[in-house]
């Protein structure tokens, strides 16, 4: 393994992805911050890492597009020389009741949130197999386990990610590549900011710990799963949700 680990965080410019990128950089990893549209925010994350003495690059790619993903992987590996950690975090929402959900809303969410994980995982496999080392961490969601009215597309994608995590874990285990999923609950980000106060207080009522989580709560779990302390953990889904889904 390379002396200095390198990580790619998809959707790393904002929210949970941003916190993960900063956390891994603070662990001394090289970090590639992928973004689809938020170039300025991705550059801000890179600048913050560099200001703290780390090594980071911003890299644009739509994870739902295989050609763009393959180009991204080549660029990242050329820059860092290796790639030990992949965090599949990029995700979007297009919420609607099933009866009203447009085909486009379904396709967009499945394409980014599920196919994006397939594209990135497949494209990094060759490098990780050669290295005989890899840590793949997929950001799923508790709604992928429990379901959630109004999010048929998002829930289906996140449940799919959990299944993909287990299969990839089984296929790659013999090459010392572990694959795990995280299932965040309600985390304070741009995505949950859009919700009304009424919805938010309703959410808190479902959380035994009685509060929303912070992006850093997820980032700490990524730090653990990407470290050698988690060498014997693969194919698992870790819920980080204040006890919401047990």
């Amino acid at each position: 393994m390379a002396e200095k680990k390198s990580a790619l965080v998809t959707g790393g410019s904002r929210g949970i992805g941003r916190a993960i990128a900063l956390e891994l950089a603070s662990e001394g990893m090289n970090v590639a911050v992928n973004y689809a549209g938020s170039e300025a925010k991705a550059n801000a994350v890179v600048d913050e890492i560099k200001a703290a003495g780390g090594h980071a690059i911003a890299i644009q790619a739509n994870v739902g597009n295989m050609d763009e993903v393959q180009g991204m992987m080549k660029e990242v590996i050329a820059e860092f020389g290796s790639l030990e950690v992949l965090v599949n975090n990029a995700g979007i929402t297009r919420d609607n009741l099933l009866m009203r959900m447009k085909e486009q809303e379904w396709d967009d969410v499945i394409n980014t949130n599920l196919k994006g994980v397939f594209n990135c995982t497949k494209s990094v496999t060759r490098q990780m197999m050669k290295q005989r080392y890899g840590r793949i961490i997929n950001v799923a969601s508790v709604v992928g386990v429990a379901g959630n009215a109004g999010q048929a597309n998002y829930v289906a994608a996140k449940a799919g990610v959990i299944g993909l995590t287990k299969t990839t874990a089984k296929e790659l285990a013999s090459r010392n590549i572990t694959v795990n999923a995280l299932a965040p609950g309600f985390i304070e980000t741009d995505m949950t900011d859009e919700l009304s106060d009424e919805v938010k207080s309703g959410m808190k009522g479902q959380i035994p710990l009685g509060r929303l989580g912070a992006a850093e709560d997820i980032a700490k779990a990524v730090k653990f799963l990407s470290s050698d302390d988690a060498n014997y953990i693969t194919g698992q889904t870790l819920h980080i949700d204040g006890g919401m889904v047990m």
């Binding site: 060759r126 197999m129 050669k130 296929e171 790659l172 013999s174 090459r175």
Partner: peptide, 11 residues
């Protein structure tokens, strides 16, 4: 060889 070995050989 298992199927993954064959993939690696091809690589």
């Amino acid at each position: 060889a298992d199927s993954l070995d064959v993939v690696e050989l091809v690589m």
